[in-house]
Amino acid sequence: MKFCLKIAQETVDVDVSSLDGKQDTEFTIGEEIYHVRYKAISDSCLHLVVDEKSTEVFVVRGEQEKHIFINGQTFSVQDDDQFPSRPARRRGIEQAPGDVTPPMPSVVVRIMVKEGDLVKQGQGLIVVTAMKMETTLKAPNNGRVIKINTTVDAKVAPGDILVEIEKEEKSQ
């Protein structure tokens, strides 16, 4: 069986074969070969013995990925066959490099630029607040603000393009 799994933008092929037709298996990940025995303990808990080292791991299914816990570290693992990557949320368009979007659901507090303004890379554009913390969204590059798609007090989410910035022409 072959899987194609992505963690933090890195996609790796994994090949699994059973040695005894049951839970005694061999995993080939890149150059590495792992001997794995396993048992499901509960809905979300698995017991793995990888190269004779025993580990308890936790796995739950999220919207587009599985969340996996191993010794205090968590991983988001995606299988492109199972969770085909979706286009940018809501607006359904690919996010362009000059677009400014909040990193999480939040509320707009202040808009510090207006359409037509020339902005410098790193300049503060919009202040959003979530969980009582304010964060300033900054310009990703030098350019002109061509569109502001939000207002103060609006609830916004990742993928919402709040400010569109057109790259400054070299000739200017």
Partner: peptide, 27 residues
């Protein structure tokens, strides 16, 4: 940034979760 040493183990866990999906004991 998070230590990624265990990422292959996470990949193994993902697949084992698939393999055991039908046989999981629930509460």
């Amino acid at each position: 940034s998070q230590n990624m040493e265990a990422s292959n183990l996470a990949r193994i866990a993902y697949i084992v979760d698939e393999l055991t999906a039908s046989t999981k004991p629930s509460a």
